[in-house]
């Protein structure tokens, strides 16, 4: 199942890339295309996930979301994270790990009886950004934090 999905993602990225080259050649410079392709390979899956989850909603960067997570993690198998938000009327909190093959870790829908605080432990395959998307009745807000995973503890 995983292999199929990977193959599908690879194909869709490839097809997307080719069609962009085919059409983009007429509209934009080749440099812009190269940049676009480089960007897709790294964050494309994250963007796809976000699109699937939140459709085409506008997501705004916010400093009212606090992510407590170690900057360097010796063990990527269990990285503690606490998300605190000072936004009003929080409806859901989603946690995504950018470079994991499937970025979405968890999405919690919280009732108004709860404080907007969520703790969990994440698996992080490689050094990556951890993004949090908070849904409120006024829209979507995001913040992210980078985590460096040191395999074995000997490498820096």
């Amino acid at each position: 199942m995983t292999d199929d999905r990977r193959a599908f993602i690879k194909k869709s990225v490839a097809i997307g890339g080719y069609s962009m080259i085919a059409t983009g050649g007429l509209l934009t410079s080749p440099e812009a295309n190269a940049e676009w392709l480089a960007e897709t390979t790294s964050t494309d899956i994250l963007q796809q996930t976000i699109k699937r989850l939140f459709k085409d909603q506008e997501i705004i960067e916010s400093d009212k979301i606090d992510i407590q997570i170690p900057k360097t993690a010796e063990n990527g198998a269990a990285v503690p994270i606490t998300v605190t938000s000072s936004l009003n009327h929080v409806e859901s909190i989603a946690i995504l790990v950018e470079k994991n093959p499937i970025p979405l870790a968890a999405k919690f829908e919280l009732s108004p009886d709860l404080e907007p605080v969520v703790s969990a432990r994440l698996k992080i395959a490689e050094s990556s950004a951890v993004a949090v998307i908070v849904e409120t009745n006024e829209g979507f807000f995001t913040a992210s934090e980078k985590v460096i995973v040191t395999p074995g503890g000997c490498e820096i």
Binding site: A77, A78, V79, P80, T82, I95, V97, N100, I102, P103, L104, A105, A106, K107, F108, E109, L110, S111, D113, L114, E115, V117, V118, S119, A120, R121, L122, K123, I124
Partner: peptide, 28 residues
Amino acid sequence: EHNKNVIITGNTGANISKDPYFAFTLKG
């Protein structure tokens, strides 16, 4: 659930560590 009212519904994926730990804070 808190006294039969659902307060949290979560969708979790395999990015959550083995033997998962979660913490939440309830007002009141």
